[in-house]
């Protein structure tokens, strides 16, 4: 249990997808103009991470990694060279599913997210999450799922925080060349500095 809490806290704060690894920056920068859409996209990312990481975990464990195909009577086969392409394929199909669900149940959000919903498929934080999962060699399926959930929550926190800041600075007198993306990058840097306070915290 303590391990799971650790993994979760680590995913949210210490190894935050945005501020520690700068993954998933494109949608983070593009969809952070208002808090409400940011929250919507954030939850979509949490959902996708929560589904893709366990699926990819099972794929990795039972098909791709060296010796994983033992159950099928092929202990010498090593398919790990396929992991990139397989992970992407899984992510793409699950994103398709999310898109259909959002369109059906939350049309307003679907309109607001626009092109960025299908783009979750190529959101680096999703593939990054899958690859971190592979690299960190989680013991159980639960650990992998909690990791996915934690990373998603961290991403949500980051995008909501910047969206709120961008709403706040809407009336700030930012120099013309920096308006829009420029100032957003600077804010992200300052926020990254704030999140550095969590680095080095050792849990349990």
């Amino acid at each position: 249990m303590q391990d799971l809490v650790n993994i979760f806290i680590k995913g949210v704060f210490i190894e935050n997808m945005i501020f520690a690894y700068f993954l998933g920056m494109c949608s983070y920068l593009a969809v952070s103009k208002t808090v409400n859409t940011a929250v919507g996209l954030g939850f979509a990312v949490i959902f996708v991470l929560c589904v893709t990481i366990p699926v990819n975990y099972l794929l990795e464990k039972f098909i791709l990694s060296a010796g994983a195909l033992e159950w099928a009577g092929m202990p010498d086969v090593d398919l790990s060279f396929l992991s990139f392409i397989m992970f992407i394929a899984i992510i793409a199909s699950i994103v398709q599913l999310v898109e259909m669900l959002v369109e059906k149940f939350a049309p307003a959000l679907y309109g607001a997210l626009g092109i960025f919903l299908p783009l979750i498929a190529v959101n680096c934080s999703i593939l990054g999450g899958a690859l971190f999962m592979q690299e960190r060699e989680f013991e159980t399926l639960t650990e992998a799922t909690v990791f996915g959930f934690g990373s998603g929550v961290g991403w949500l926190l980051a995008i909501v925080a910047i969206a709120a800041i961008r709403e706040k600075i809407r009336y700030s007198n930012v120099p013309a060349p920096l308006r829009g993306l420029g100032i957003t990058f600077i804010i992200t840097g300052l926020m990254g500095m704030a999140f550095m306070s969590f680095m080095g915290i050792e849990l349990g």
């Binding site: 808090v35 925080a161 709120a164 800041i165 550095m196």
Partner: peptide, 29 residues
Amino acid sequence: MFRVFNPAYPEGMMLAILFMNVMAPIIDH
């Protein structure tokens, strides 16, 4: 919490204020 948990960064107050500065707009929202 920072000063107790994070031996490398004993000055937790500065980091906490910086962190909450960033989070303040969400709270307001």
